[in-house]
Simulated assay, not measured.
Amino acid sequence: MRLSAPVYQLKRKARLLSRADNIPLHEALDRIAVREGFAAWSLLVARMSSVTPAAKLFEQLSPGDLVLVGARPGHGKTLMSLKLAVEAMQSGHRSVFFSLEYSEKEVLDRFSAIGVEPARFDTLFEFDNSDDISADYIARKLADAPRGTLVVIDYLQLLDQKRENPALMVQVRALQSFARERGLIFVFISQIHRSYDPAVKPCPDLEDVRLPNPVDLGLFSKTCFLNNGDIRFQAAR
């Protein structure tokens, strides 16, 4: 179940309700929980504590977001992106996976790796690995995509691999405008520079994103970096 707001905001609502109605805080918390579909606040907290990292991240995404998911090879960036796609589909939204790296079979196999049967989402999931993938191509393919559709792009550094495609910065800006205009969520899988040293810091960050061509990383509204099971999520200030 997706909450109407993060837990900390719900707590604030409960405190305001407690003061406004002159009731104990625990009663106000229970009232807020009922509004969210739980019989009591304790049940809401128990449910949220069992939520997966992908579910927690998805809870914080909004239509128009550009999300950067980065990790070194083998540390779960593709799986995290697929988990976000699953979260979107479980909420009734479409997910589209554009890949310049994987075949459809490889992606479907990764669904199995996260314990998900792709057939469950047959009408909500779409895979595209055309050689023509670029910002313009993606916008054309998503011309009729409903608001809330989650789009995975695999991966950022390959969007301008063809010389005839616009510069990477131009493409990311175009997709940012498109996402905001249409209310879509874009998740960009990103390579991390091989100079990243986990002995220096446990998880990579924006400084470690591999950029063979310039991109203003400030265009991304949220980031998620992974390393050895450690997950660091941050929203733009």
Rank of each mutant, 00 (worst) to 15 (best):
M1D: 13
S4F: 02
A5Y: 02
Y8I: 15
L10E: 02
L10R: 15
L17V: 11
S18K: 09
S18R: 08
A20H: 11
N22S: 13
L25V: 12
E27M: 14
D30Y: 12
A33G: 10
F38C: 10
W41F: 14
L43Q: 15
L44Y: 01
V45R: 14
A46V: 09
A46H: 11
R47W: 12
M48P: 07
S50V: 10
V51F: 09
P53H: 05
A54P: 10
A54L: 05
A55D: 06
L61S: 11
P63E: 03
G64I: 04
V67I: 11
L68S: 10
L68D: 08
A71R: 09
R72V: 12
P73I: 01
K77H: 08
M80F: 12
M80Q: 10
L84A: 09
A85R: 03
V86Y: 01
E87D: 03
A88S: 09
M89N: 05
H93I: 01
R94V: 03
S95V: 06
S95G: 05
F97H: 05
F97V: 07
S99E: 00
L100T: 10
E101M: 01
E104G: 07
K105M: 07
D109Y: 02
A113G: 05
E117G: 05
R120K: 13
D122Q: 08
F125Y: 02
F125R: 02
N129D: 03
D131H: 13
D132S: 12
I133Q: 06
I138E: 04
I138L: 08
L142C: 05
D144E: 04
D144P: 02
P146S: 10
V152Y: 02
L156W: 05
Q157F: 01
L158M: 13
D160K: 11
N165L: 01
M169C: 05
V170T: 14
Q171T: 10
V172M: 04
R173H: 09
L175W: 03
Q176I: 08
R182S: 04
I185T: 15
F186S: 12
F188D: 03
R194Y: 00
P198A: 07
K201T: 15
P202S: 13
L206V: 13
L206A: 14
L211R: 15
L211D: 05
L217C: 07
L217Y: 07
F220K: 13
K222A: 15
C224S: 14
F225Y: 03
D230F: 13
I231T: 15
